[in-house]
Amino acid sequence: MSMSDLFKEATARTEADVPYSRPGTPGGVRIQHIGFIGLGAMGYIMARNLAVNREARPPHSPPVLVWNRTASKAEKLAKEVGESKIRVAQDIEQIARDCDIIITNLSNDQVVKEVYEKLAAELQSSTHNKILVETSTIYPTLAGELDALFSSLPNVNLITSPVFGNPAVADKAQLLIVMSGDYRSKKEIAYLLVPAVGRKVFDLGGNIEKAPTFKLIGNSMILGTLEVLAESFTLAEKSGIGSSLVLDLVKDILPAPTTVAYADKMVHDKFDGSVGFAIDGGIKDASHIRRLTAEHNSPMPNIDVAHQHMITARAIHTAQKAAGKQEYETLDWSGIVAGTRVAAGLDAFDSRKHLNVVRVEKEED
């Protein structure tokens, strides 16, 4: 296959994964100033990928302006990719003033609300067009509250755009991107984020609360899978089968990359949340899912159990930290298996301490 054919194939695949026609650019390529707020495990990688992707940042584009509550993370990113591609903002207000597109990726609903209140206050007098892109996992009604903050500002559009994928997926720019809100803004941001940050966009329409709802439904499937895996591996340990054999079975009958990756973490006690998804975030998401199920009278008992098992795991990890005996500073949400292990009388985080029950067949006389 020739290089031109490869290019056509890649272009066709990208176009199919973005549910909008490519935005027009009268008078040439529009140079936009991008701002990014929140450089956690996911935000750091997303901002980096935006900064280094040529399609997202045409020649002569200004550096991506970043801000993080812990300034050292922003400084680290600027050093990693160079100040020609990343520049550190003095504060959130500077990003509001200087940037045309402002992307946020934040830890929880309260932080999201605080950041957007600061943005809204700074943008009250703005006469320039701004697009705000909220990529965190938030409760749907918060999206409506954020939208109301900017309803009186005709030059500001907010879209919700949560993403699916862990840091390893983000590193490969393979995130799944969900969008809801203003059509023209979604169209513009879709081509900014794909393929720089993600590989596909799900369009949830104009209701800004739909994308956060979709994200919680997706996370319920992931969390439910984690709970089933945790229970199965624990039973395998107690019955003398061993979790390694069950991991092989998972690879054969449930070969989804995310499922296999989390299964491998559980079996090999790889619970480092600094390179995964911190269990605090998992508990927050589970709380949101449970609230959503209550509002819609749609029970998810599996999520109720998973929520309790994550709390158990966090409680054990917190006690270990207090005693200075923890292996990881931050616990990954695959540590949910600790909840099922201790309920079955096993060690929470060290499977080497498990005393497997070996079944012996009774010989006939």
Rank of each mutant, 00 (worst) to 15 (best):
A261K: 12
A294T: 13
D17K: 14
A338P: 04
T293L: 06
I336V: 12
A313E: 01
K118P: 04
T11V: 14
R30T: 15
V163W: 00
R291D: 07
G198K: 08
R48I: 12
I92F: 07
K321E: 08
V228N: 05
N155K: 15
P63D: 00
G28T: 13
V64I: 13
I283W: 02
E209Y: 01
G273Q: 01
I177P: 07
P140M: 02
P257F: 03
Y20S: 10
I37F: 03
E93V: 15
N356K: 15
R13M: 12
M179Y: 02
H268I: 10
F271C: 11
L204M: 15
Y262A: 01
E364R: 12
I303M: 10
P255Y: 03
R199T: 13
V18F: 00
E361M: 13
I37H: 05
D98T: 13
T14G: 00
N108Y: 04
P63H: 03
E117I: 04
Y116I: 05
S136Q: 10
K321L: 14
L142D: 09
A319L: 05
T213P: 11
L142C: 05
N166V: 14
I45T: 14
I131G: 06
T11A: 13
K284G: 01
K113F: 02
S274Y: 12
N53P: 11
L235G: 07
I316S: 00
A143E: 01
Q308F: 01
N302S: 14
P255F: 04
K321S: 10
S152Y: 04
N53R: 07
N108V: 02
F349M: 02
G165P: 08
A322V: 10
V133K: 03
G339E: 05
G206T: 15
F277V: 01
K362R: 15
E327M: 13
N157C: 12
N68A: 09
P301A: 01
N105I: 13
G38F: 03
T213M: 15
R352G: 02
A263Q: 01
I283S: 05
A343Q: 15
A348C: 10
L175Q: 06
A344D: 04
F150S: 05
V88L: 02
F349T: 01
V250F: 08
K251P: 10
V357S: 15
I303H: 06
L50M: 07
I31D: 01
R199F: 06
V66H: 07
V112E: 02
R314C: 08
P167V: 11
E227K: 12
